[in-house]
Protein backbone atom coordinates (compact mmCIF):
# COMPACT_ATOMS: atom_id res chain seq x y z
CA UNK A 1 0.00 0.00 0.00
CA UNK A 2 1.45 3.36 -0.88
CA UNK A 3 2.25 6.18 1.45
CA UNK A 4 -0.78 8.35 0.93
CA UNK A 5 -3.26 5.58 1.63
CA UNK A 6 -1.32 4.47 4.67
CA UNK A 7 -1.38 7.99 5.96
CA UNK A 8 -5.07 8.33 5.31
CA UNK A 9 -5.80 5.02 6.97
CA UNK A 10 -3.71 6.11 9.90
CA UNK A 11 -5.83 9.22 10.20
CA UNK A 12 -8.99 7.19 9.85
CA UNK A 13 -7.84 4.92 12.62
CA UNK A 14 -6.92 7.88 14.76
CA UNK A 15 -10.40 9.26 14.23
CA UNK A 16 -11.90 5.89 15.15
CA UNK A 17 -9.84 5.89 18.31
CA UNK A 18 -10.92 9.39 19.19
CA UNK A 19 -14.53 8.31 18.82
CA UNK A 20 -13.88 5.23 20.90
CA UNK A 21 -12.64 7.43 23.74
CA UNK A 22 -16.06 8.96 24.14
CA UNK A 23 -17.58 7.31 27.19
CA UNK A 24 -19.97 4.60 26.01
CA UNK A 25 -22.92 5.97 27.95
CA UNK A 26 -22.72 9.45 26.44
CA UNK A 27 -22.23 8.01 22.99
CA UNK A 28 -25.28 5.82 23.30
CA UNK A 29 -27.38 8.67 24.50
CA UNK A 30 -26.30 10.82 21.55
CA UNK A 31 -27.02 8.06 19.04
CA UNK A 32 -30.26 7.42 20.83
CA UNK A 33 -31.35 11.02 20.50
CA UNK A 34 -30.66 11.09 16.77
CA UNK A 35 -32.38 7.81 16.23
CA UNK A 36 -35.28 9.10 18.23
CA UNK A 37 -35.40 12.28 16.14
CA UNK A 38 -35.30 10.31 12.90
CA UNK A 39 -37.94 7.83 13.98
CA UNK A 40 -39.91 10.79 15.32
CA UNK A 41 -39.80 12.39 11.87
CA UNK A 42 -41.02 9.15 10.35
CA UNK A 43 -43.86 8.99 12.87
CA UNK A 44 -44.85 12.62 12.30
CA UNK A 45 -44.99 12.07 8.54
CA UNK A 46 -47.03 8.93 9.15
CA UNK A 47 -49.47 10.66 11.48
CA UNK A 48 -49.89 13.68 9.20
CA UNK A 49 -50.72 11.43 6.28
CA UNK A 50 -53.01 9.29 8.41
CA UNK A 51 -55.02 12.37 9.34
CA UNK A 52 -54.83 14.40 6.14
CA UNK A 53 -54.51 11.91 3.31
CA UNK A 54 -57.74 10.08 2.51
CA UNK A 55 -57.28 6.33 2.48
CA UNK A 56 -53.68 6.37 3.69
CA UNK A 57 -54.25 4.12 6.68
CA UNK A 58 -56.27 1.47 4.87
CA UNK A 59 -54.72 -1.94 4.75
CA UNK A 60 -54.87 -2.05 0.97
CA UNK A 61 -52.94 1.20 0.70
CA UNK A 62 -50.27 0.22 3.21
CA UNK A 63 -49.65 -3.09 1.47
CA UNK A 64 -49.43 -1.12 -1.77
CA UNK A 65 -46.70 1.04 -0.22
CA UNK A 66 -44.77 -2.08 0.74
CA UNK A 67 -45.27 -3.60 -2.69
CA UNK A 68 -44.14 -0.43 -4.47
CA UNK A 69 -41.06 -0.21 -2.24
CA UNK A 70 -39.89 -3.80 -2.64
CA UNK A 71 -37.52 -3.37 -5.60
CA UNK A 72 -35.98 -0.28 -4.00
CA UNK A 73 -35.72 -2.12 -0.68
CA UNK A 74 -33.93 -5.15 -2.12
CA UNK A 75 -31.41 -2.94 -3.93
CA UNK A 76 -30.93 -0.73 -0.88
CA UNK A 77 -30.28 -3.83 1.26
CA UNK A 78 -27.55 -4.73 -1.23
CA UNK A 79 -26.10 -1.23 -1.06
CA UNK A 80 -26.20 -1.22 2.74
CA UNK A 81 -24.39 -4.57 2.91
CA UNK A 82 -21.69 -3.21 0.59
CA UNK A 83 -21.33 -0.04 2.68
CA UNK A 84 -21.33 -2.00 5.94
CA UNK A 85 -18.52 -4.18 4.60
CA UNK A 86 -16.54 -1.48 2.85
CA UNK A 87 -16.89 1.35 5.34
CA UNK A 88 -18.72 4.64 5.01
CA UNK A 89 -15.96 6.83 3.53
CA UNK A 90 -17.35 8.66 0.50
CA UNK A 91 -14.44 8.01 -1.80
CA UNK A 92 -12.66 4.93 -0.52
CA UNK A 93 -15.49 3.17 1.29
CA UNK A 94 -17.85 0.57 -0.08
CA UNK A 95 -20.38 1.58 -2.70
CA UNK A 96 -21.97 -0.21 -5.63
CA UNK A 97 -23.08 2.07 -8.46
CA UNK A 98 -23.82 -0.91 -10.72
CA UNK A 99 -26.94 -1.98 -8.79
CA UNK A 100 -29.45 -0.16 -11.00
CA UNK A 101 -27.91 -1.26 -14.29
CA UNK A 102 -27.54 -4.79 -12.94
CA UNK A 103 -31.28 -4.75 -12.15
CA UNK A 104 -32.03 -3.96 -15.80
CA UNK A 105 -29.60 -6.63 -16.98
CA UNK A 106 -31.04 -9.33 -14.69
CA UNK A 107 -34.62 -8.50 -15.69
CA UNK A 108 -33.55 -8.74 -19.33
CA UNK A 109 -31.83 -12.09 -18.73
CA UNK A 110 -34.95 -13.49 -17.07
CA UNK A 111 -37.26 -12.22 -19.80
CA UNK A 112 -35.08 -13.37 -22.67
CA UNK A 113 -34.65 -16.78 -21.06
CA UNK A 114 -38.40 -17.24 -20.54
CA UNK A 115 -39.09 -16.12 -24.11
CA UNK A 116 -36.50 -18.58 -25.38
CA UNK A 117 -38.64 -21.32 -23.83
CA UNK A 118 -36.19 -22.24 -21.09
CA UNK A 119 -38.81 -22.45 -18.37
CA UNK A 120 -39.06 -20.64 -15.05
CA UNK A 121 -36.57 -22.76 -13.13
CA UNK A 122 -33.78 -22.34 -15.66
CA UNK A 123 -34.58 -18.66 -16.16
CA UNK A 124 -34.43 -18.07 -12.40
CA UNK A 125 -31.10 -19.86 -12.13
CA UNK A 126 -29.71 -17.85 -15.03
CA UNK A 127 -30.95 -14.60 -13.48
CA UNK A 128 -29.30 -15.31 -10.15
CA UNK A 129 -26.17 -16.40 -12.00
CA UNK A 130 -26.15 -13.10 -13.89
CA UNK A 131 -26.65 -11.06 -10.72
CA UNK A 132 -23.97 -12.97 -8.85
CA UNK A 133 -21.54 -12.72 -11.79
CA UNK A 134 -21.86 -8.95 -11.84
CA UNK A 135 -21.22 -9.02 -8.08
CA UNK A 136 -18.17 -11.23 -8.68
CA UNK A 137 -16.80 -8.84 -11.29
CA UNK A 138 -17.22 -5.97 -8.82
CA UNK A 139 -15.55 -8.05 -6.14
CA UNK A 140 -12.69 -8.97 -8.45
CA UNK A 141 -12.20 -5.32 -9.38
CA UNK A 142 -12.32 -4.03 -5.81
CA UNK A 143 -10.62 -6.85 -3.95
CA UNK A 144 -8.46 -8.42 -6.65
CA UNK A 145 -7.35 -5.39 -8.63
CA UNK A 146 -7.70 -2.84 -5.86
CA UNK A 147 -9.78 -0.37 -7.90
CA UNK A 148 -11.75 2.16 -5.85
CA UNK A 149 -15.31 0.78 -5.45
CA UNK A 150 -16.81 4.04 -6.72
CA UNK A 151 -14.83 3.72 -9.94
CA UNK A 152 -14.94 -0.03 -10.44
CA UNK A 153 -18.70 -0.19 -10.07
CA UNK A 154 -19.09 2.85 -12.33
CA UNK A 155 -17.32 0.97 -15.15
CA UNK A 156 -19.33 -2.18 -14.40
CA UNK A 157 -22.50 -0.07 -14.49
CA UNK A 158 -21.71 0.88 -18.09
CA UNK A 159 -21.01 -2.72 -19.02
CA UNK A 160 -24.31 -3.91 -17.50
CA UNK A 161 -26.34 -1.13 -19.14
CA UNK A 162 -24.76 -1.96 -22.49
CA UNK A 163 -25.39 -5.68 -22.12
CA UNK A 164 -29.02 -4.96 -21.26
CA UNK A 165 -29.30 -3.00 -24.53
CA UNK A 166 -27.69 -5.86 -26.43
CA UNK A 167 -30.09 -8.41 -24.91
CA UNK A 168 -33.26 -6.37 -25.34
CA UNK A 169 -32.35 -4.36 -28.45
CA UNK A 170 -33.57 -1.39 -26.40
CA UNK A 171 -37.20 -2.48 -26.57
CA UNK A 172 -39.80 -3.55 -24.06
CA UNK A 173 -39.81 -7.34 -23.92
CA UNK A 174 -42.97 -8.99 -22.65
CA UNK A 175 -42.68 -12.23 -20.77
CA UNK A 176 -45.49 -14.53 -19.71
CA UNK A 177 -44.59 -17.37 -17.43
CA UNK A 178 -46.30 -19.28 -14.64
CA UNK A 179 -43.82 -17.86 -12.13
CA UNK A 180 -44.45 -14.24 -13.12
CA UNK A 181 -48.21 -14.81 -13.13
CA UNK A 182 -47.94 -16.42 -9.72
CA UNK A 183 -45.91 -13.52 -8.28
CA UNK A 184 -48.28 -10.97 -9.79
CA UNK A 185 -51.44 -12.77 -8.72
CA UNK A 186 -50.96 -14.94 -5.64
CA UNK A 187 -51.88 -13.57 -2.23
CA UNK A 188 -50.99 -16.11 0.44
CA UNK A 189 -52.54 -15.11 3.80
CA UNK A 190 -53.94 -12.00 2.16
CA UNK A 191 -50.65 -10.36 1.25
CA UNK A 192 -49.11 -10.30 -2.20
CA UNK A 193 -46.05 -12.36 -2.86
CA UNK A 194 -44.09 -9.15 -3.37
CA UNK A 195 -45.00 -8.05 0.17
CA UNK A 196 -43.83 -11.41 1.45
CA UNK A 197 -40.56 -11.07 -0.46
CA UNK A 198 -39.91 -7.72 1.24
CA UNK A 199 -40.79 -9.11 4.64
CA UNK A 200 -38.89 -12.37 4.23
CA UNK A 201 -35.72 -10.77 2.88
CA UNK A 202 -35.82 -8.08 5.55
CA UNK A 203 -36.10 -10.60 8.38
CA UNK A 204 -33.47 -12.88 6.87
CA UNK A 205 -30.97 -10.04 6.43
CA UNK A 206 -31.69 -8.59 9.88
CA UNK A 207 -30.61 -11.92 11.31
CA UNK A 208 -27.73 -12.60 8.92
CA UNK A 209 -26.15 -9.15 9.07
CA UNK A 210 -26.80 -8.23 12.68
CA UNK A 211 -26.97 -11.50 14.57
CA UNK A 212 -24.69 -14.06 12.93
CA UNK A 213 -20.90 -14.29 13.28
CA UNK A 214 -20.64 -13.64 9.53
CA UNK A 215 -22.56 -10.39 9.81
CA UNK A 216 -20.66 -9.19 12.85
CA UNK A 217 -17.35 -9.91 11.12
CA UNK A 218 -18.58 -8.03 8.04
CA UNK A 219 -19.29 -5.03 10.27
CA UNK A 220 -15.85 -5.38 11.82
CA UNK A 221 -14.25 -5.31 8.37
CA UNK A 222 -16.17 -2.16 7.51
CA UNK A 223 -15.28 -0.54 10.82
CA UNK A 224 -11.56 -0.91 10.40
CA UNK A 225 -9.74 -3.01 7.85
CA UNK A 226 -6.54 -3.08 9.84
CA UNK A 227 -8.19 -4.05 13.08
CA UNK A 228 -10.13 -6.78 11.30
CA UNK A 229 -6.97 -8.02 9.63
CA UNK A 230 -5.03 -8.12 12.86
CA UNK A 231 -7.92 -10.01 14.43
CA UNK A 232 -7.30 -12.66 11.81
CA UNK A 233 -10.35 -12.06 9.64
CA UNK A 234 -10.08 -12.81 5.94
CA UNK A 235 -10.87 -9.28 4.86
CA UNK A 236 -10.90 -9.87 1.05
CA UNK A 237 -13.36 -12.74 1.45
CA UNK A 238 -15.84 -10.59 3.38
CA UNK A 239 -15.54 -7.68 0.96
CA UNK A 240 -16.05 -9.98 -2.01
CA UNK A 241 -19.06 -11.62 -0.39
CA UNK A 242 -20.68 -8.24 0.23
CA UNK A 243 -20.64 -7.45 -3.51
CA UNK A 244 -21.86 -10.93 -4.44
CA UNK A 245 -24.71 -10.71 -1.90
CA UNK A 246 -25.70 -7.38 -3.42
CA UNK A 247 -25.72 -9.02 -6.87
CA UNK A 248 -27.96 -11.84 -5.61
CA UNK A 249 -30.38 -9.34 -4.06
CA UNK A 250 -30.48 -7.51 -7.38
CA UNK A 251 -31.42 -10.77 -9.15
CA UNK A 252 -34.29 -11.28 -6.70
CA UNK A 253 -35.42 -7.69 -7.25
CA UNK A 254 -35.24 -8.23 -11.01
CA UNK A 255 -37.70 -11.12 -10.86
CA UNK A 256 -40.08 -9.05 -8.69
CA UNK A 257 -39.76 -6.19 -11.18
CA UNK A 258 -40.29 -8.49 -14.17
CA UNK A 259 -43.55 -9.60 -12.57
CA UNK A 260 -44.65 -5.99 -12.03
CA UNK A 261 -43.66 -4.81 -15.52
CA UNK A 262 -44.67 -8.05 -17.31
CA UNK A 263 -41.13 -8.45 -18.56
CA UNK A 264 -38.23 -6.11 -19.05
CA UNK A 265 -38.36 -2.44 -19.91
CA UNK A 266 -35.51 0.03 -20.49
CA UNK A 267 -34.73 2.61 -17.83
CA UNK A 268 -34.08 0.47 -14.74
CA UNK A 269 -30.82 2.31 -14.13
CA UNK A 270 -32.78 5.40 -13.05
CA UNK A 271 -33.29 3.85 -9.64
CA UNK A 272 -29.60 4.21 -8.72
CA UNK A 273 -29.72 7.60 -7.00
CA UNK A 274 -32.75 6.60 -4.92
CA UNK A 275 -30.90 3.48 -3.82
CA UNK A 276 -27.84 5.49 -2.78
CA UNK A 277 -30.00 7.99 -0.91
CA UNK A 278 -32.06 5.32 0.87
CA UNK A 279 -29.07 3.36 1.96
CA UNK A 280 -27.06 6.35 3.21
CA UNK A 281 -30.13 7.67 4.99
CA UNK A 282 -30.48 4.37 6.84
CA UNK A 283 -27.62 5.50 9.06
CA UNK A 284 -29.82 7.97 10.93
CA UNK A 285 -32.11 5.17 12.07
CA UNK A 286 -29.37 3.07 13.63
CA UNK A 287 -27.87 3.32 17.08
CA UNK A 288 -24.29 3.56 15.85
CA UNK A 289 -25.17 6.01 13.05
CA UNK A 290 -23.94 3.56 10.41
CA UNK A 291 -25.97 2.02 7.61
CA UNK A 292 -27.87 -1.01 8.84
CA UNK A 293 -30.54 -3.37 7.61
CA UNK A 294 -33.09 -2.14 10.15
CA UNK A 295 -32.34 1.44 9.21
CA UNK A 296 -32.69 0.59 5.54
CA UNK A 297 -36.12 -0.92 6.14
CA UNK A 298 -37.22 2.25 7.92
CA UNK A 299 -35.82 4.63 5.31
CA UNK A 300 -37.36 2.63 2.46
CA UNK A 301 -40.74 2.83 4.18
CA UNK A 302 -40.20 6.53 4.93
CA UNK A 303 -39.63 7.30 1.24
CA UNK A 304 -42.43 4.96 0.16
CA UNK A 305 -44.89 6.65 2.53
CA UNK A 306 -43.80 10.10 1.36
CA UNK A 307 -44.41 9.35 -2.31
CA UNK A 308 -47.69 7.58 -1.61
CA UNK A 309 -48.93 10.22 0.83
CA UNK A 310 -48.17 13.05 -1.56
CA UNK A 311 -50.18 11.33 -4.25
CA UNK A 312 -53.11 10.81 -1.88
CA UNK A 313 -52.92 14.47 -0.87
CA UNK A 314 -52.92 15.36 -4.58
CA UNK A 315 -49.64 17.26 -4.38
CA UNK A 316 -48.23 17.86 -7.86
CA UNK A 317 -45.59 15.26 -8.68
CA UNK A 318 -43.25 18.12 -9.62
CA UNK A 319 -42.94 18.83 -5.89
CA UNK A 320 -42.26 15.26 -4.83
CA UNK A 321 -38.54 15.08 -5.66
CA UNK A 322 -37.88 18.42 -4.06
CA UNK A 323 -39.82 17.83 -0.86
CA UNK A 324 -38.28 14.40 -0.60
CA UNK A 325 -34.82 15.95 -0.98
CA UNK A 326 -35.50 18.65 1.61
CA UNK A 327 -37.01 16.25 4.18
CA UNK A 328 -34.12 13.86 3.82
CA UNK A 329 -31.61 16.68 4.18
CA UNK A 330 -33.48 17.79 7.31
CA UNK A 331 -33.33 14.35 8.85
CA UNK A 332 -29.65 14.03 8.01
CA UNK A 333 -28.96 17.52 9.33
CA UNK A 334 -30.49 16.64 12.69
CA UNK A 335 -28.08 13.77 12.84
CA UNK A 336 -24.96 15.69 12.02
CA UNK A 337 -25.78 18.72 14.15
CA UNK A 338 -26.46 16.56 17.17
CA UNK A 339 -23.30 14.61 16.49
CA UNK A 340 -21.31 17.83 16.40
CA UNK A 341 -22.83 19.13 19.62
CA UNK A 342 -21.77 15.84 21.16
CA UNK A 343 -18.23 16.49 20.05
CA UNK A 344 -17.89 19.83 21.76
Amino acid sequence: MDGAIDQRLGVALATEDAEAEVPPLKRNRRGGFVRFAAIGALLIVFVVFAIAAPGFLTRGNLTNVVEQSTVLALLAFGMSIVIIGGGGDVIRGGIDLSLGANLGLCAAVFTVAVNAGLGDATATVLTFAAGASVGLVNAFAVVGLGILPLLATLAVMNICAGLELVLTQNTVLTANSPLLAYIAGATPLGFSLTDWTFLGTALLLLVVVHATPWGLRLQAVGGSVQAARSAGLRVPLYLALSYVSAGLLVALAAIVQAARLSGSSPGSGDILLSVVLTSLMSAVFSRRLLPSIGGTILSVLFIGCLINGFQLLNVSSYWVNGVQGVLILLVVAVRSVSRRSGEV
Binding site: V276, N321, G322, G325, V326, I328, L329, V332, A333, S336
Partner: peptide, 27 residues
Protein backbone atom coordinates in the same frame (compact mmCIF):
# COMPACT_ATOMS: atom_id res chain seq x y z
CA UNK B 1 -23.95 25.64 3.52
CA UNK B 2 -25.29 22.11 3.90
CA UNK B 3 -21.77 20.74 4.14
CA UNK B 4 -20.06 23.33 6.35
CA UNK B 5 -22.89 24.77 8.44
CA UNK B 6 -25.03 21.68 8.92
CA UNK B 7 -22.17 19.23 8.62
CA UNK B 8 -23.94 16.90 6.18
CA UNK B 9 -21.61 14.62 4.24
CA UNK B 10 -20.88 15.96 0.74
CA UNK B 11 -22.28 12.87 -0.94
CA UNK B 12 -25.69 13.19 0.76
CA UNK B 13 -25.80 16.98 0.70
CA UNK B 14 -25.19 17.29 -3.04
CA UNK B 15 -27.45 14.30 -3.75
CA UNK B 16 -30.23 16.09 -1.87
CA UNK B 17 -29.54 19.25 -3.88
CA UNK B 18 -29.77 17.20 -7.09
CA UNK B 19 -33.24 15.98 -6.10
CA UNK B 20 -34.38 19.46 -5.10
CA UNK B 21 -32.88 20.86 -8.33
CA UNK B 22 -35.06 18.51 -10.37
CA UNK B 23 -38.19 19.84 -8.69
CA UNK B 24 -37.10 23.47 -9.07
CA UNK B 25 -36.60 22.99 -12.81
CA UNK B 26 -39.88 21.13 -13.27
CA UNK B 27 -41.81 23.77 -11.37
Amino acid sequence: ALITVLGISPFLATLGVLFVGESVQQL
